[in-house]
Amino acid sequence: MLTLLTAMYLVVRAAYAQAEPIRVLVTGAAGQIAYSLLFSIAKGDVFGKDQPIILVLLDIPPMLPVLDGVVMELQDCALPLLREVIPTDKVEVGFKDLDAAILVGSMPRKEGMERKDLLKANVAIFKTQGAALDKYAKKTVKVLVVGNPANTNCLIASKSAPSIPKENFSCLTRLDHNRARSQVAMRAGVSSDKVKNVIIWGNHSSTQYPDVHHATVSLSGKEVPAYEAVKNDSWLRGDFISTVQQRGAAVIKARKLSSAMSAAKAICDHMRDIWFGTPDGEFVSMGVYSTGNSYGISDDLMYSFPVTIKNKTWQVVNALPINDFSRAKMDTTAAELIEERDTALTFLSA
């Protein structure tokens, strides 16, 4: 019996040892969000504790010396799952045979820059990256767009990669989701894991709608509606929403830099849920492709919905009741996304 158990153990161990590494791309890899992100990916916190990783780090040519330093640090961490680190400024190297792509790099808005100029610059970036995904990556690649304006950048990337299913593209609203969850938890006097099913609707911008009408809070082992747990409807319909909407700006004002640590954590949460699925009875917020069949939102947008994930496939949580207050806010953020999309598409076709 012992011999049989030993043999089984050796077979399982050998199977793990022989697991093929997955190729994970991070763009903007010399930036501060990537610096907070790469260790968690390489350590196994995102794709699994038994999944070897090849990290591909893409940035613009002037940042290659910085990438060399990042590579040295990753090597010095002596992480057993990290099989290779590839720094590059070439898309044919960066996008080759990818299993996952985390597109962090984008053109930031500079002082005096109009929104249309920002969109034009980012259309050029994400058109190029989408085309590279289409040409070089696996057709099963899962693509997460982080660089702002994330929803519209994600749409442009997906349109520029027609051979990859649009369902494989998503944009990051998990940071906003986590912010909303934390705000409710602090107000209710519980830890954030006691709050579930908050929703971020729409755009990752100041028009987003953090919604807790379907959220619950675990109090003394009992699930109660968030409104009942917080006991302050005016706060939930006022300061709570504006706090989540403006949180990124508040972080920049306080630390003179953008929110890198919390963004990296949200990226990890988002990709881990894609890889391993969402817990039963819980949904999360993701910007995904709208087909016009969910909540009356126009098609051909990357709009943040509540989703569940199983077998690396997301499904919008449909049929949640929507009151007039929520409807108005959902439509406002959709209108902004429509305007962004239409402006961006003029540059895409130019």
Rank of each mutant, 00 (worst) to 15 (best):
Q246E: 13
R272N: 13
A226N: 04
S262V: 12
F283A: 01
Q315L: 08
F283I: 05
G277H: 07
Q245C: 10
D269L: 03
G281Q: 11
N293S: 09
S285M: 11
N311V: 00
M271N: 06
W275F: 12
S218W: 00
A264N: 11
W275I: 09
D233H: 07
T313M: 07
G287Q: 04
K265V: 14
I241H: 02
V316E: 04
D300G: 08
A319Y: 05
R247H: 14
N311D: 15
I241L: 09
P321M: 03
D299R: 08
K310L: 05
I274S: 00
P279I: 04
D280C: 00
S298E: 13
P225G: 09
G221S: 10
V244Q: 12
D233E: 15
M286P: 09
M302D: 04
W235R: 01
N311Q: 10
S304Q: 10
R255Y: 14
A263T: 15
A263C: 15
A226Q: 06
F240N: 09
P306N: 06
D280L: 00
G296Q: 04
R247W: 14
V230L: 03
S218K: 03
V244H: 12
N232M: 02
P321F: 10
R237T: 07
A249K: 12
P279N: 06
V251E: 05
V317H: 02
D239A: 14
V307H: 06
G292H: 07
A254I: 04
V251S: 04
A319C: 05
R255M: 09
I241A: 03
G287P: 07
S218Y: 00
I309Y: 04
F305D: 04
P306W: 06
D299A: 14
A254D: 14
D273Y: 13
G221H: 02
D269K: 01
S234F: 02
V230S: 03
R255N: 10
Y289K: 05
V244R: 10
P279A: 13
L301Y: 11
D280S: 09
Y227G: 14
I241C: 03
K256A: 14
W235E: 03
L257H: 10
T291R: 10
S258P: 03
I297C: 06
A226S: 08
M261H: 13
A260N: 15
